[in-house]
Amino acid sequence: MHGKMKQLSTTDHIKSLRGRGSAVLKGFFMAVSQLTDFVLRFFKELFKPPYEFSEFAKQSYLIGNKSFLLVAITAFIMGLVLTIQSRPVLVEFGAESWLPSMVAVSIVREIGPVITALIFAGKVGSGIGAELASMRVTEQIDAMEVSGINPFKYIVVTRILSTTLMLPLLVIFADAIAIYGSYFGVNLKESVSFHLFFLQVFQKLDFTDVFPAFIKTFFFGFSIGLIGCYIGYNANTGTEGVGKAANSAVVFGSLMVFLVDMIAVQITSLFT
């Protein structure tokens, strides 16, 4: 009797696991489908007038200019630390004169875009997620719909477009500042003139280093904005939903950055 009950409970457990697994899978496919709809609606609304230039400019200022200081400090430290950490290995090979070229290629190709995008996901992605979620929770989005304003166009399109266009600019600044940080790092141990450092930086940089890295930053920005807006726009009601949306926007935004980076590297390696 006892054995039969035990057997029954094990079967129930397997059934419940299967049920939970299929629910997760269904939820995942549902989310993918909703996200695809969201992306399609973004492109539809993007080209359809009227255009919200003023809101776009305001968001670009908030997303771009207001993130500059954080990105600049991070980039400077990144360049400095990368130089200090790489130096001993190159000294071992007697190749410390390669330090500027090596650091510049690492920063421009990979570290600059990815680190800036992660910082951006942390600051801007979470901000967008929390802002849109609180608008949803306080029914501001519903109020917009009632008053005849297209909330998707006004809130979502402007923000995604701003993140898409502002992140590449921030990455350009980050690269330049990180290279300056590297110059500072090189001069901690040896004396190299800025002119020589500058020449060595551009000695190994190529268009195949700059353009793929620059193009992928548009996709990073788009992904971060898209994830932040999607999660915030579809947030659950209640104050709990706001925190959850902010958290999810950072986690999934960062994950998307790495996924896009992996795809970008694969595509770039096909052509170089």
């Binding site: 400019a57 771009g64 350009i172 268009f207």
Partner: peptide, 20 residues
Amino acid sequence: GLGAFVTTGLLLFVIGIYFI
């Protein structure tokens, strides 16, 4: 501020491209 930010960013990019 936004205009200055965008202009400086693009200028830096153009300078980089020019040197390469």
